[in-house]
Amino acid sequence: MTLATIFYAIGFPLLGIILGLLYKGIDRKISARMTSRIGPPIRQPFWDVGKLLIKETVVPENAVAWIFNVMPIVALASSMTLLLYIPFGIIKAPLEGYGDLVVILYLLTLQALAMAIGGFSAGSPFASVGAQREMILMMSYEMPLAIVITGFALIYKSFSLSTIALTPVWTLVGPVGWIGLLLLLAALLIVTPAELAKLPFDIAEAETEIAEGLLSEYSGRNLALFYLSDAVRSFAMVALEVALFFPFTFSQGFGLQFSEPVSYIIEGLWFLAKVLILYILAVTLVRTSFARFRIEQASRLFWTYVNIMALLGLILVALEVM
């Protein structure tokens, strides 16, 4: 066990939590400004977590207690692990070499699955309806997501994220492939809010319909864990998109050269800035300007339009590469 391992085991998840909550704070602030409100201070998510942690954790009478209590931990653990697979600009992913895009796909699913199982085990009608919706939604958006990842595998002949992050994907294909990639990007951007359970796809947690659905029975520490896992996953998902589609480094983009330690800091900040911009565009703006779909509408949207879009993109990319 080296010092680096300890840093990655403790420091990285901590950094992930801080970044996730910070981005959540910025997201809430900007969303508030978009609706002409002042909004909470950016440190508000930290306070929320702190307050939830000191609150009593209630387990409903007819819940399956051990599943009910384990699922928040599974959700947070999967989000944290997901973070360890994503390269931060030129800083390599800590778990590089131990898995690839397919693992990421499964980790993304695992988090949603943990929430759904937690909902089913809560033994409340609202949570059960929410869990059903989450399962349906998951089945709908996994297909386009898998197609996007297949597209990347086709181009790079590899599932390794580090290989993908090293060379920008746009430099590897011609104009036809560009259109294909744009379609894949659009499909991924539509999947993002569904994956993160944000509007317009927060159907499983619909407040006015089923009173926060999945989370309706969760409280205290368990809710704090779900809250953290949501924050970390939002950050990781957007970071993944940046790593896939916008891996351009600062030095490449502006033709500058830096010495070794400075370049790490600058590239790290550059990566965070890219994630922030994409976060605001793909999460904040979308969740602020759309209403919630009905579950069957969302399902139809993914199975037909988004699927067709992603498949078309895949075909174009394949035409170019083959």
């Binding site: 508030a32 400004r33 609706t35 002409s36 409100r37 909004g39 300007s289 759309f290």
Partner: peptide
């Protein structure tokens, strides 16, 4: 969406 972007550029109403 355009309305929200427009409001982002304005001062908060609160």
């Amino acid at each position: 969406m355009f309305l929200m972007i427009r409001q982002l550029l304005q001062r908060p109403f609160t």
